[in-house]
Computed example of a mutant assay.
Amino acid sequence: MPIIPTVSRVEHVDLDVFAAAHRPDWDRLDELVRRRRRLSGDEVDELVELYQRVSTHLSVVRSSGHDPVLTGRLSGLVARARSAVTGAHAPAWRDVARFFTRTFPAVVYRLRWWWIGATLGTLALSFALGTWIALDPEARALLGTPEDIRAYVENDFENYYVEYPGASFAARVWTNNAWAAAQALIFGVFLCVPTLYVLALNGANIGVAGGLMFAHGKGDVFFGLILPHGLLELTAVFVAAGVGLKLGWTIIEPGARPRLRALGEEARPAIAVALGLVVVLFISGLIEGLVTGWVHITWLRIGIGVVAEALFLAYVFTLGRRAVREGETGDIEDAPAAAPVAG
C-alpha cells in the first residue's frame, strides 16, 4: 500500500504522488461547489469536510514551493469553496465603496512619486517646447504656413470645444482620453519606452499649442480653455503613465522577487488604477464637453477645473494615505499566494 505524504512530512512531499492521491477529493469538491445551490444535507456536510481537507492540501503544496500551476489551481478551488461554505458575500455596493474609498486611492497614493515625476517631466518638455516656438519665428514656420497658423490661433483652437454638441463631445473626449491613459499604463510593461513616448507626445502637443497661442498674444485664451478640463484630464493621464512606468521598471529591476511574481504583484493593483481612472476621465470629459466651450466666464471655467483637481488630489492624499498606512496595497483580496520559484 503506497504511503501518502502528510503535513508532518512537507519537506519530503512528492507532488506527483501527492496530487494522484488527492485528486479525487479535489474533483469531488469542485463538483460540489458547482452544484452548491442544489446540495442535499449530507452533501453540504461533505462540502464542508472537503473544504477543510483541501485547504490543508493547499498548505502542503504551497510549502513545497515547486508547482505554481497546482498552487494556483488549488487556491482558486479553495476560494470558491470558501464562498460556497460561508454562503455570505458583501453586497456589491460595499465592494464598490471599498474600491473607491480604499483600493483606488491607496494605489494612486502609493505610486505617487512615479506619476509626480511623469507630471514634472512632461510639463518641463511642454514649457521648453512652447517657449521655443513662441520666441522663434523659424520654429513656427516649421509647423505650417502663416495662413494655417493664423486660422488655428484665431478660430480652430477655440472652435474645437464647440464644434459638436456638449454631450456627444464629452463622450468623444472621454473615449479618446481613456484610450490615451490605457496606452500609457498598459504599454509601460514594455520596459517603459512606449509610456515615455505617450508622455512626450502629450507634452509636445501642449507645448506646440501653447507656443503658437502665446506667439500671437492669445496666452489668456490658451489657459482659459485648457485649464478647466486639462488639470484633471492630464493628471489622470500622468497617473496612468506613472503606473505604467512602475510596471516597466518592475521588469527591469524586480528586486529580490522573481520577475513574474513581481510583475503580478504590481499588475493587479494597476488594474484598479485603470478602472478608477475611467471615472476620473468621465468627469474631466463632462467638464470639457459641458463647461470648457460653453461657460463664457473665464474665471468660472477655470474655477471649476481647479476645484475638480483640488478635490481629486485631496481624495488621493487623504483617503489614499490613510489606507496605505493601514496596510492597503490595492491588490485583490484572497489573491493566490505566489509560490516560491528557483531563481
Rank of each mutant, 00 (worst) to 15 (best):
V7W: 11
V7F: 13
V13F: 06
V13M: 07
L15D: 04
L15Q: 04
V17N: 00
A19I: 06
R35P: 02
S40T: 10
S40V: 04
S40D: 05
V44S: 01
V44M: 03
D45E: 13
L47R: 00
V48E: 12
L50W: 00
S55K: 06
S59L: 09
R62L: 15
P68V: 05
S75Y: 04
V78S: 05
A81R: 00
S83P: 03
A84L: 07
G87A: 03
A90G: 01
A90T: 05
A97T: 11
F100A: 09
A106S: 13
Y109K: 04
R112A: 12
L125E: 10
L125W: 14
L125C: 03
T131L: 15
E138Q: 14
E147M: 13
N155K: 12
D156T: 13
E158S: 07
Y160S: 09
Y161R: 07
E163G: 09
Y164R: 15
P165N: 06
A170D: 08
R172E: 15
A182S: 12
I186N: 11
G188H: 03
L196Y: 08
V198G: 08
F214L: 14
F214M: 11
K218M: 11
V221E: 09
F223H: 08
H229L: 01
A236G: 07
G242I: 06
G248D: 01
E253D: 14
L260R: 10
L260P: 02
V273D: 10
G276Y: 01
L277T: 00
V291W: 07
T292G: 01
I297N: 12
I297Q: 13
T298R: 15
T298M: 14
I302R: 09
G305R: 08
L313W: 13
Y315G: 05
G320L: 11
A335T: 02
P336G: 03
P340G: 07
V341W: 04
